[in-house]
Design a binder for these strands. Sequence first.
DNA 1: TTTAGCACTCTCCATAGCGGAGTGCTAAAC
DNA 2: GTTTAGCACTCCGCTATGGAGAGTGCTAAA
Lengths: 354, 354
Amino acid sequence: MAEKKASAEIAVNERAQHLLKVLIERYIQDGEPVGSRTLSRDSGLDLSPATIRNVMADLEDLGLVASPHTSAGRIPTVSGYRMFVDSLVTLKPLEREKLQQLESGLYTKADPKILVESASSLLSSLTHMAGLVMIPRRKQLTFRQIEFLPLSAKRVLTILVTTEGEVHNRVIELRKAYTPSQLVQFANMLTENYSGASMEEMHRRLVREMEQARADMNQIMAQALEIAEQAIDGDIGSDDYVVAGQTNLMEFNDFSQMNKLRELFDSFTQKNEILHLLDESMLAEGVQIFIGEESGYRPFDQCSLVTSSYQVDSQVAGVLGVVGPTRMAYDQVIPIVDITAKLLSMAMQSDKES
Amino acid sequence: MAEKKASAEIAVNERAQHLLKVLIERYIQDGEPVGSRTLSRDSGLDLSPATIRNVMADLEDLGLVASPHTSAGRIPTVSGYRMFVDSLVTLKPLEREKLQQLESGLYTKADPKILVESASSLLSSLTHMAGLVMIPRRKQLTFRQIEFLPLSAKRVLTILVTTEGEVHNRVIELRKAYTPSQLVQFANMLTENYSGASMEEMHRRLVREMEQARADMNQIMAQALEIAEQAIDGDIGSDDYVVAGQTNLMEFNDFSQMNKLRELFDSFTQKNEILHLLDESMLAEGVQIFIGEESGYRPFDQCSLVTSSYQVDSQVAGVLGVVGPTRMAYDQVIPIVDITAKLLSMAMQSDKES
DNA sequence: TTTAGCACTCTCCATAGCGGAGTGCTAAAC
DNA sequence: GTTTAGCACTCCGCTATGGAGAGTGCTAAA
């Protein structure tokens, strides 16, 4: 008996877990603190409110639920949600209708950019929250071709094309003037030598070979390499993401704390912090969930982030997910994010049949 | 006397105008209905509140002011604001500090895109409202060069470069397969023939010459033209704009009507309607102001839009402006928009020294 | 034409009272 | 011993009330 009690204190017995589950489901449904009376009615356990109250007191001691004030019901805490999504939630299979929407929105298209945008807006419209999709890291893109286009004597527009068909362009300032034909020569040389290399690899090789070319007195090669280095420098590592349906978040957040909401919106524009967060979830396989403060990022205090990485050529290429109130329908959102990631992977994949 | 009275009834006499001006300035400052007492104190006219009340009653009859309820002061109506910005407002010269901010933010840079984004964010940060800048119409861009890059048998990435150094790319599906060298040939042909033409002109000529090439049995030319037509088709007329600081608007709008705010935010994302609005103000020279409903666009009901067109090569290239609450500091905003437009024109201009 | 005076209206705020919902504790019941 | 019933207590939210403040419109006098 003593044993049983001890384990109850540490691990939460099954009945308590079930009650926690029902409580959270209920709270997610109507957003109001759940009282013992309601729980007694809906739990299917045939327990009196008084008993439930005892259990609730235990759960509160364990930090899984809390009550906003003395005489209100209980609401889940972050730890409560954590336990819920980790082991209690019963995922709801995606409705046929929504699945079709996803499939028809993510059929293989040429432009990965459009694909990413579709994914983002699909996520947003299916979940009624904000969807975001990270654009594949430049580092993992494969170089295909480069072009130089003179704008003025020393200003050159560089156009860099990846195997995936993305185009990046930027204007660079040269230290000395080159003739158009020289530039064409450089471009061809670079395209021939580096086509097929990943951007990261290209960067490494460029640096190495530049040294060597200098040593060999191969001026032309050295110059070409220097320009190339300038051209890809900025594009490497400049990840980005696409948000959709931010305004959906205005419906939640209890329209009380405009400030909070504003912070959140601003954070979408500033990007860096969110990229950081997304980066983290690139590492893990499958769906990952950050609840409230867990993200370690202030504006997300009241929000949860459900993410999943997606693959291209069987290696992680990016992350997608949705942002919404902590009190979101995890049972529906998780499958949506999961499947969207898989469909996006597929769409990006078959895109490769070039 | 009778004469004077008659004119007063139609045109609002000078004293009334002055009072309207003071009232609006006051209302803009603290956002609360202005009463006769306050006005009597601040107008500098040495009139008793009672007299002011009479004048107010007149102004109300003329539809220039209104009172939210029986015993509140008056607030300006749309017509009131209109009269204010048209003839009453005394513009406040731009503070040196702000001017410097603008100048240093809009020095001539290579990329017009960056320039546009700077302008937008400068507008937003100087006015504490939302700034927006329309990106030059494709129609007025000048074609410089085109490249075709085969992705797969029938899919080609087209890269289109304008004289201004902007790059547009899109993937097109071909009806039949071409060899890479054919594509290069096409590209050269097109670049040679059309370089220097405006996109609009290019479009016109393409259509015309396609017919002719067909008649001449000049298959190659006809095919090249057809592809080119496909390539530029989407880019023509697809105007766009950049918004910055939307979240500033959350501070106003009296945080009561979340719905209104949401509509507004959504309208920034949907773009089409706003583009329409901006289009309208392209026609006029100088600063233009849309107050509240005047824009004829629902989400802007409670907002004003202050715009000005900017020039490149002494012809109108685009529009910029700010969106904010009707109750905005017009005396400061108007000069800011005006000068930003001028500085942007200059920055874009000298950019042309290629 | 302007002003003073006065009655009137409407908002805003604080106060108080009450019902509802839910809790925690204690003591009895199973 | 776990479960339950009972009870006192707390807190929220709603409504009614009433007074202070601000401002108006009208009338009559200056």
